[in-house]
Amino acid sequence: MSTPTPPVVVLAHSPNQSAGAAFEAAVRQAGWRGARLVILNASTGESLVDPHHARPSDLADMTGRAGEAGVDAVVEQPIGPDVATIILDRADALGAELIVLATRHRSSIGKLIMGSTAQRVLMEADAEVLLVKDTDR
């Protein structure tokens, strides 16, 4: 395990949630660890217009801000039926050290129907997981 490549921090990014706080935490973590940041914007591709699918301009803005903080960031926008699986698989493949996720408050009906991406990642990931709460509201 003597690879010279820098460690990887994966940010599971979804524009709807408390994305700002999670992004800042991910950049801070990547800075401390001297890690590369992979911004993973996974969406199901189920709707023609998907609010979870980030705009190219916003993603460019994020990599720019990470660069200003001295963190090397790349963006991936994979599409698949299940977001949690995508995050777990990509983190695995990248050999990620840490996965950063945003969580938000959900109603009980929302919990019943939607399941939880965060919950599945937390339970099944091999890497460390950092959950960032919604601090905007």
């Binding site: 023609l48 217009v49 699918h53 705009r55 599409i79």
Partner: peptide, 9 residues
């Protein structure tokens, strides 16, 4: 022929 990537609104 489902378009897979969401389009920008």
């Amino acid at each position: 022929h489902l378009r897979r990537a969401p389009v920008e609104l």
